[in-house]
Simulated assay, not measured.
Amino acid sequence: FSKQVRTSRNITGGWWATWLMGGLNYQIEHHLFPNMPRPHLSKARAIVKEHSQTLNVPYVETTLFESYGIVIRYLNRVGLAARDPFECPMTSAAARA
């Protein structure tokens, strides 16, 4: 439960977010109950959110644009950490000598 809730986030935005994302804006509930029909995910949200608070597990909800920002910042951080994954350490050492 804790791992699924901590590694997912729901997208807020009301009926338009549900329509736009086909009901998968309830990612936390979808990851906990992958076979649950999408229209019922919103009903499970209240139960899961309350249970998360009981267990002191962070339950994250964000807007669609904030969610994209989180993903883009993460990809930039990871991507920039490995500037050139094909650089050979031996060749680099020989070029410096």
Results as ranks from 00 to 15, higher is better:
Lys49Asn: 01
Ala44Cys: 03
Phe65Pro: 00
Met21Ser: 09
Ser2Ile: 04
His31Ala: 13
Asn25Trp: 02
Glu50Val: 00
Pro89Gly: 02
Arg6His: 09
Ala44Phe: 07
Pro89Asn: 01
Arg96Glu: 02
Ala81Val: 01
Gly79Phe: 08
Asn76Ile: 15
Ile28Phe: 11
Gln53Pro: 07
Pro34Tyr: 04
Asn10Arg: 01
Arg6Trp: 10
Lys49Thr: 02
Ile47Tyr: 01
Glu66Gly: 06
Trp19Leu: 09
Arg77Phe: 13
Ser42Phe: 11
Ile11Gln: 11
Ala44Glu: 00
Leu20Lys: 13
Leu75Met: 02
Arg77Thr: 08
Arg83Gly: 04
Ala93Tyr: 13
Pro39Phe: 15
Tyr74Glu: 12
Glu61Tyr: 06
Leu80Trp: 03
Tyr26Leu: 04
Glu87Arg: 06
Phe1Gln: 03
Asn35Thr: 10
Gly13Tyr: 12
Thr18Ala: 15
Lys3Trp: 03
Gly13Asn: 03
Pro58Trp: 05
Thr91Asn: 06
Val57Asn: 05
Val57Arg: 01
Tyr26Pro: 01
Gly23Gln: 00
Thr54Pro: 01
Pro89Met: 02
Lys49Gly: 03
Phe86Arg: 04
Asn76Asp: 10
Thr54Lys: 10
Cys88Ser: 14
Asn25Pro: 09
Arg6Glu: 12
Pro39His: 15
Asn25Ile: 03
Arg6Thr: 15
Tyr74Asn: 07
Thr63Tyr: 05
Thr62Lys: 09
His40Ile: 05
Trp16Asn: 12
Ala81Cys: 02
Lys49Cys: 02
Leu41Tyr: 03
Phe65Lys: 02
Arg77Ser: 14
Ala95Pro: 07
Glu87Val: 04
Arg6Cys: 14
Arg9Pro: 03
Cys88Met: 12
Arg77Asn: 13
Gln27Ile: 08
Thr62Tyr: 05
Asn56Phe: 06
Leu20Val: 13
Trp15Ile: 15
Leu55Gly: 00
Trp19Asn: 14
Arg96Trp: 04
Arg73Asn: 02
His30Leu: 12
Phe65Thr: 08
Thr7Pro: 00
Val60Trp: 15
His30Cys: 11
Val5Ile: 07
Ser67Ala: 01
Arg83Val: 03
Arg96Asn: 08
Gln4Phe: 05
Gly22Ile: 06
Lys3Ile: 00
Phe33Thr: 12
Leu41Lys: 11
Ala81Gln: 11
Arg96Cys: 07
His31Pro: 03
Thr12Pro: 02
Glu29Thr: 10
Glu66Asn: 09
Tyr59Lys: 01
Ile47Asn: 00
Met90Tyr: 10
Phe33Arg: 03
Val78Gly: 03
Gly69Asp: 04
Thr91Lys: 11
Ser92Ala: 15
Tyr59Asp: 02
Leu75Glu: 11
Pro58Glu: 12
Met90Ala: 13
Thr63Trp: 12
Tyr59Arg: 05
Glu61Lys: 08
Ala95Tyr: 09
Ser8Ala: 15
Leu64Val: 01
Ser92Ile: 10
Gly13Lys: 08
Ile70Asn: 09
Ile28Ser: 13
Arg83Ala: 13
Asn35Gly: 15
Arg77Trp: 13
Thr7Tyr: 12
Ala95Ile: 09
Phe33Val: 11
Thr62Cys: 14
Thr63His: 08
Tyr68Gly: 10
